[in-house]
Design a binder for these strands. Structure first.
Length: 248
DNA sequence: TGCTCGATTACCT
DNA sequence: GGTAATCGAGCAA
């Protein structure tokens, strides 16, 4: 396993920019988390920008609370929140303290610590594909789904609320982001391979194209938009119209 | 103090 | 393609 503590970390200045600038630059970088159980690293393939006070979909839009306090702090820290009563999602704080912008990490490809990631996700230890399950007919799909989606990625990397506020730029910290150069430069595509589109699963400001992903990468999560959250004019008698739901 | 609903996922038909 | 699971933040009263 690679010694990630000795790999280069993205500097704090990298994050001290608008989240919409930081997000596409994170594609191809490697996010890793070290715990007593071991280290898991993932190459980022899908991210979303959340822009604080100017973004109604951002957790920080309505001001600082105990939950989102980290977003209001200095850049380069991890903001981890609990979602749907069962999942964690991890963001990286952007902009100088007070602006509360962040990039949500939506999906990645596990590039290190695959055994541990596999155990966390499926309770098995056959990630090398040498046994029946890993090599089975669903093995490929399970491998792809290890960190496909924000909740799955956190589970694979072992990230929960205890990682909230962790400084990804500080040497020795449990979470870090390494630039593509430190890993497989050949896999990092140019700007032409980056796709842009609306964010996933939000009901406010759903039209803003602040989701970024690597084209043609199977590790990108499935897109699903949410019904807009507007005051329903009361269903009189007529028929209900389309609800705006769509799939990839 | 109570209730609604989510920056989701897994499993069902 | 649909929906149960599961819980806490945030809002209404």
């Amino acid at each position: 396993m690679r010694n990630h503590d000795e790999t280069e970390r993205l500097p704090r200045v990298f994050f001290a920019r608008p989240a919409t600038d930081v997000a596409p630059d994170l594609l191809g970088c490697v996010l890793w988390h070290a715990s007593p159980a071991g280290l898991v690293a993932a190459r980022l393939v899908e991210v979303e920008a959340y822009r604080g006070a100017i973004d109604p979909a951002s957790h920080s839009f309505r001001g600082q609370t105990a939950r989102n306090a980290v977003m209001f702090g200095p850049p380069g820290h991890a903001y981890v929140y609990f979602s749907y009563g069962m999942h964690y999602c991890v963001n990286l704080v952007c902009q100088p303290a007070g602006l509360a912008e962040a990039v949500l990490i939506r999906a990645g490809a596990v590039v290190d610590g695959t055994d541990l990631a596999w155990r966390r996700r499926y309770g098995l230890a056959d990630a090398d594909g040498s046994t029946a399950v890993g090599a089975g007919r669903n093995g490929g799909q399970r491998q792809r789904d290890l960190a496909r989606g924000p909740g799955r990625l956190c589970q694979a990397l072992g990230i929960d609320r205890s990682a909230d506020g962790a400084d990804a730029c500080a040497p020795g910290g449990p979470i870090g982001i390494s630039p593509p150069e430190a890993f497989d430069r050949a896999e990092v595509a140019g700007a032409a391979a980056i796709r842009v589109g609306p964010r996933v699963g939000i009901s406010r400001a759903a039209d803003r194209p602040w989701r970024f992903w690597l084209a043609d990468d199977g590790h990108v999560s499935a897109y699903k938009s949410l019904r807009p959250r507007d005051p329903q004019p009361k269903p009189v008698s007529g028929r209900r119209t389309e609800d705006g739901t769509m799939h990839e």
